[in-house]
């Protein structure tokens, strides 16, 4: 049995979770299982919760003695209640709790994850960084990439401005190409900025964008409005002289590339797109010569498969499943 603390307005309640089921007040009332519910008023004297400081270091006994309290932000209380119910975000043990039991529960979660074949941003990022490290020095100077969650975070209001400041540090206007992995609506695709530092009049290099998507029938251009806003904000944040009209006229090209045959492969396709594009991209990308090598016969599925296998061993981890952190290590 686990005990969770949930903060609700105007007081906090302590609830008992029964077999993982959160017993909400209304549910309890309906089922009259009042014995399962402890209610504690946490408002003795102070209405504000004391921020918690957890000490990480020190001897083991010290960490056991740390008094834990949870700080909740007043602003988000209502939203929080909903989130918490879903994620057990504030679940913690109060009474001494047998360690083994807890880790068993977690091991089950881990097991479920290693079974799935779709790539999450953690696994994707890890493989992408390994892949990046395998490119030559030259390539790593003339190319750069944005973290695979940045575009996703940009689309979420509280992080928009932050993402733009992070991008500034990437100096994308001095790079030939910028790889931007995109995860949107649970689908991976690869956006590439080409020659953003050049003017639209340049004869040798055309500033443009490529969107490589292994699921053409999903209409890759549905993310175009977001991409346009993203690019406009990047130009603005960098204080570039180009005007809005120029930025909206930057071509967004969607070449016909090899397609996935199931509903889980897109992450691997994006990794392979990245590898092959970096290796094959011309020094000067011109829209006149588009689509270069990016056609339906760019690569075979066998090629993709052997690439994934190699990347998996390079990483010491299979390309499905992936990360094991300390306590979650599976017994082998």
């Amino acid at each position: 049995m686990q005990i969770a603390i949930r903060f609700a307005r105007p007081y906090s309640t302590v609830q008992i979770l029964n077999n993982g089921q959160t017993c909400t007040e209304s549910l309890l009332r309906r089922n009259s299982v009042t014995t399962h519910c402890l209610e504690l008023s946490m408002r003795k004297g102070k209405s504000k919760l004391i921020p918690e400081i957890i000490s990480i270091d020190g001897d083991t006994s010290a960490s056991e003695n740390v008094v834990v309290s949870l700080s909740a932000c007043k602003r988000t209380l209502e939203q929080e209640a909903e989130d918490l119910r879903r994620s057990f975000a504030l679940t913690r043990t109060i009474a001494p709790f047998p360690r083994g039991q807890r880790s068993k529960r977690r091991a089950n979660i881990k097991h479920a994850i290693s079974k799935q074949k779709k790539l999450d941003s953690g696994a994707f990022g890890c493989h992408f960084e390994k892949l990046w490290g395998s490119f030559s020095e030259d390539k790593r100077t003339s190319f750069t990439y944005l973290d695979c969650l940045w575009f996703y975070l940009y689309r979420r209001q509280p992080y928009k401005a932050k993402v733009l400041t992070w991008i500034k540090k990437k100096h994308i206007f001095s790079k030939n190409y910028v790889l931007v992995p995109i995860i949107c609506w649970q689908h991976w695709s690869l956006l590439i900025f080409c020659h953003f530092g050049e003017s639209l009049q340049s004869k040798t290099r055309t500033p443009c964008m490529l969107l490589l998507d292994s699921l053409q029938m999903g209409n890759p251009r549905r993310v175009e409005p977001d991409i346009r806003k993203f690019v406009l904000d990047i130009y603005k944040a960098e204080g570039r002289p180009e005007n809005e009209d120029f930025i909206y006229r930057i071509p967004l090209l969607v070449p016909k590339v090899p397609q996935q045959t199931n509903n889980e492969e897109c992450g691997r396709f994006v990794l392979y797109f990245s590898k092959l594009f970096v290796e094959g991209a011309p020094e000067d990308f011109r829209v006149e010569d588009y689509p270069y090598f990016m056609n339906e016969n760019w690569f075979t599925l066998e090629g993709l498969e052997s690439f994934c296998e190699k990347l998996g061993t390079l990483n010491g981890l299979p390309l499905k499943g992936w990360r094991t952190s300390g306590r979650l290590k599976k017994k082998t």
Binding site: I54, I56, D57, S71, T76
Partner: peptide
């Protein structure tokens, strides 16, 4: 994590 804030005290080398 946008909902909760927790403060940690940690050694530089940990």
């Amino acid at each position: 994590d946008n909902n909760n804030e927790v403060f940690f005290k940690i050694k530089r080398t940990t």
